[in-house]
Amino acid sequence: MENKNYISSYCAAKNGEVIVDHTISYSEKTLLSVDFIKSVYKHFQFNYPKFYKMDHLCKLAFVTSELLLKSNPVTQKYSSEDIAIIISNSTSSLEIDTEHQNTISDKGNYFPSPAIFVYTLSNILIGEIAIRNSIKGENTFFIFDKFDPVFMSSYINSLLKSGKAKCCITGWVDFYENKYESFLYTVEKEQGTLKIEHTSEQIKKLYNN
């Protein structure tokens, strides 16, 4: 019993829909890609001017992490050092990488931009979530072909078991060529309202819904 961990809340955004803890909290099927993500930001009236400076990938991570932590404010329960952020995706920062490449490919119009270049690292989105919520625990960004619940659940369970973290914000945030998908969830020893055990099967179920 002692070693069980639980998915205490989750937030998923894809296909013009945002789901928080089994409930559709926002739907806007007419807007595509980043316009949809911006509409989520406006709909929930997040007041964070830095949002507009973020690349698409970080914008997506920002809105889903905001909704996740609104549903389950783990920063009030745990000290900042005990919350880990472990996130994964498939395309790393390729969306903004391509944008940076475009600023340097034409010698006649050569203006590399620091505001673009800084986002050419996938883990910047972890930094954005950490800054927004003052979270200081473990950080890791993994890259997989597809979301890998088996590896992620096993890695995070041992992180919690060894006491290296007491809570983990984790999941998948991917944005490339107008395709977006975010699935973030919190893992803790406490059951939370969802009472879903943190196993790869349960993650798969939630992810595929």
Binding site: P49, F111, P112, S113, P114, A115, V118
Partner: peptide, 17 residues
């Protein structure tokens, strides 16, 4: 405007571009 160090570098790009 609450700009930061990256914005400062970005303004340098703006002046040049």
């Amino acid at each position: 405007l609450g700009l930061d160090s990256i914005d400062a570098l970005e303004l340098i790009v703006l002046l040049e571009k």
